[in-house]
Design a binder for these strands. Structure first.
Length: 476
RNA sequence: GGCGGCGUAGCCAAGUGGCCAAGGCGGAGGUCUGCAAAACCUCUAUUCAGCGGUUCGAAUCCGCUCGCCGCCUCCA
């Protein structure tokens, strides 16, 4: 079975066939760097990170480009406000974005280009558009003439008439059509400017993605992604610009992720209802957040809720308990003999199911369900290992497979809460108390044992007595 | 106004014509354990916003109604 992807162009699932066998070229719209990124940006980044991981699991060689928009009105306005240069402001937030993504476990793209490093490529594209007669200069600006591109509106599913009917853009009498959009903007006093055939100015927003994607990936490439708010006008305009020049299909598969809502409304800066990634990670485990996100299909809206993330953290604990158990059994050495009781075949079936549901337009909710089922299976088997009924080897193999599959989704990078976060002096004190409690227990002095457990609880430590002895961990 | 999407258990959420409607959280009972925790087992939607229709058969297709959201302006 092959991968099927929902293509925004056509609004249906299609079999995924890359341009070159075994290779995938993808471009993802990144962020405009004028402020800290929020949970909505995080969702988009995590979705495309998951897609890239899965494509790699399918043994595709993936080349991914994710851009930074580092010149635009908001950056300029913000920089003026803070009394720094737009470049300085952009650099700062690029740095912050990279830190946030790393903290979320989102891998770096193969290329992370900045718009301002590609001005000459943009100018060349604009020149070609002017030469072809699909764009026209006007007082130092250059506009794309939408009427010259017959399939304009195809991605968003709207006709020019539909678009004109609902147009909320300010009518600029100079433009040939209200829907014509800027490729190049004449710069005003005090704004960053680059020399061009039309005078000093700066690029319009849409042209940068055409320029950078075609520069790094070619005139036609496989996947272009971003949040669903980019469908119109951003991606619609990219198609118009690019295809007007090359007269070839720009992108084969358009993938758009759904929004994060907060309080029944889209999380966005203009509405003011945002939660930054930094704020999120101050209180929550990044893997719990990832598990929470994966529980909802990437195209569906997600109602953000800290309570749901806390639930995901509890669910994640169950996997981690299993991994701890596997570590303990693996460390014991000299595996006792025994059968596998059909476990490995069930593990293979779980893998098959995982791949099948992921092949269906990245159904991570189902994939996660397969992971939970596999974990249950392994836990049940582990009870039998402990009782000496079956061998430990198949159990460890099964856990290894669970880890492999989870990591395809970016989960289980940390198999347990990092014990490193325990300060050494606290660790020593806890170890002493745990030992004292074990001594008391071996004397069957339950009163003392319980008292010590209470003492440990006050330190935020919980203890568990198992057949292999007592273990402890920090409670969140 | 135009275009599009959503409404599934206490909560979250998959499923888009036919095996018992995934999975998670929460809850109930049981096993194990000195107790606890963890883990395991069982149970927790005769029903998919409502009303009609198509079909041998619909949560899934069609129509209408109600409620919610997004895009059409910068936006992941």
């Amino acid at each position: 079975m092959g991968l099927r992807i929902h293509n925004t162009l056509g609004r249906q699932k299609e079999e995924f066939v890359p341009l070159r066998p075994g290779e995938v070229q993808m471009y993802v719209c990144g962020v405009t760097v004028y402020d800290l990124s929020h949970v909505g940006h995080a969702r988009s980044a995590l979705v495309f990170d998951m897609i890239r991981r899965y494509l790699r699991f399918k043994e595709y060689r993936v080349r991914m480009v994710r851009n930074f928009t580092d010149v635009d009105d908001k950056i300029i306005a913000r920089a003026h406000q803070e009394g720094v240069s737009p470049r300085e402001l952009a650099e700062r937030y690029i740095e912050e974005y990279r830190k946030d993504m790393a903290a979320l476990g989102v891998g770096e793209a193969d290329v992370e280009p900045k718009a301002t490093d590609h001005i000459s490529q943009m100018i060349r594209l604009i020149e070609r558009l002017v030469t072809k007669g699909v764009a026209y200069p006007l007082d130092g600006d250059v506009y794309f003439e939408v009427k010259r591109f017959p399939s304009y509106g195809r991605l968003s599913g709207m006709s020019l008439e539909d678009l004109r009917a609902g147009a909320r853009v300010e009518v600029d009498e100079r433009k040939r059509d209200p829907l014509d959009f800027a490729l190049w903007k004449r710069s005003k006093e005090g704004e960053p400017a680059w020399p061009s055939p039309w005078g000093p100015g700066r690029p319009g927003w849409h042209i940068e993605c055409s320029a950078m994607s075609m520069h790094y990936l070619g005139d036609s490439f496989d996947i272009h992604g971003g949040g669903e708010d980019l469908i119109f006008p951003h991606h619609e305009n990219e198609i118009a610009q690019s295809e007007a020049i090359t007269e070839q299909p720009f992108v084969r598969y358009w993938i758009h992720n759904g929004f994060v809502n907060l309080g029944a409304e889209k999380m966005s800066k203009s509405l003011g209802n945002i939660l930054t990634v930094k704020e999120l990670l101050r209180h929550h485990d990044p893997e719990a957040f990832r598990l929470y996100l994966l529980g909802t299909h990437y195209r569906n809206p997600l109602d953000f809720s800290l309570e749901r993330i806390a639930e995901a953290a509890r669910a994640l604990e169950r996997f981690r308990n299993l991994f701890d158990e596997a570590d303990r059994l693996a460390a014991k050495g000299t595996p006792p003999p025994g059968g596998d009781d059909g476990l490995l075949e069930k593990v293979a079936r779980a893998r098959h199911r995982f791949e099948e549901v992921m092949d269906d337009d990245f159904n991570t909710a189902q994939a996660v369900a397969a992971l939970f089922d596999l974990a249950h299976l392994l836990q049940a088997f582990r009870s039998k290992v402990t009782q000496g009924q079956v061998a430990v080897g198949p159990f460890l193999l099964g856990v290894g497979e669970l880890l492999t599959l989870g990591r395809v989704l970016g989960l289980f990078e940390a198999t347990s809460k990092p014990p490193l976060s325990v300060p050494p002096e606290l660790r020593a004190r806890v170890e002493t108390l745990v030992q004292a409690r074990s001594d008391a227990r071996s004397r069957r002095d339950w009163a003392t044992a319980d008292r010590i457990r209470q003492e440990l609880a006050e330190l935020g430590v919980s203890v568990e007595d198992g057949p292999e002895g007592t273990t402890w961990k920090l409670r969140p």
